[in-house]
Amino acid sequence: MIYRSGQKVLVQGITGKQGTFWSQKMMEMGTSVVAGVNPKRAGETHLGVPVFASAVEATRQIACDISVIFVPPMLARDAIVDAIDAGIGCVVVLTEHIPAQHVLEIHARAKRAGCRIVGPNTAGIVTPGEGFVGIMPGHNPNIFKPGHVGVISRSGSLGTLICLNLTRAGLGQSAFIGIGGDPMIGTTTRDALEALDRDERTHAIAMIGEIGGTMEEEAAEYARTMRKPIASFIAGRSSPPDKKMGHAGAIVTGGRGGYASKREALEQAGVRVVDTPHEIAIALAGVYA
């Protein structure tokens, strides 16, 4: 889930408006986009790379390490299953509003095949100086610059703001991992935290959470074991809790998931939790001082 230069990227939905725009941006930054998929335009060349009918067809001819999904919600499941069947090790799912029953199937299939899903509803992953996969302004040097802070964010826009603040404070980033805003995502906060803990270039971590779910509480259990400093901002402190699931929701989460629960779990694990996004950069600048 950390992009490394030279990793080969397949773009499913490459010929669409967004697929085209962002594939160009990825290429500009040096990302190795090697092929695209559109069943109706197989055999054509788009942006200088071959277009195939499926991911399975593409990987028969060109090895791909990562696939990125620019496919509308109702077609996303089949596209992702195609990438899994093609044996691609990592699938970055940008699509939002995929039906939950489809998402359940996607995760179950990925688990069996040993495929890593990033997202759904992620803005993607960025490694400054190497490349990016997704819909992040990875090519913008005012926002991203190479360095040693690993950034984890559910939200693309808020994650962008955090990276911008870090860059301005003189703190470059080792990796940005957009994990996605959906409730059921393949790569959790804890998964991303473990990857950044193992990453030698990462010296400190900015963890951007949100209310809802229990991912921050689960990440806190791992953070407790870490030596790298972590600063965290949790969005949604002033948003009303979602009551939709009622009894059953409470039975499953046991009162976790709200702002107070997340902040307490993280602080007890030694994480510095701040009140505004800009304080992330201040807190981490302090670590380096």
């Binding site: 939200s155 693309g156 826009s157 808020l158 703001l161 951007i208 949100e210 002033s238 948003s239 505004t276």
Partner: peptide, 13 residues
């Protein structure tokens, strides 16, 4: 974006 919108509300508070 939902994340940045929630954050803006939080900072207002």
């Amino acid at each position: 974006g939902a994340g940045l919108t929630m954050t803006t509300m939080d900072v207002i508070n």
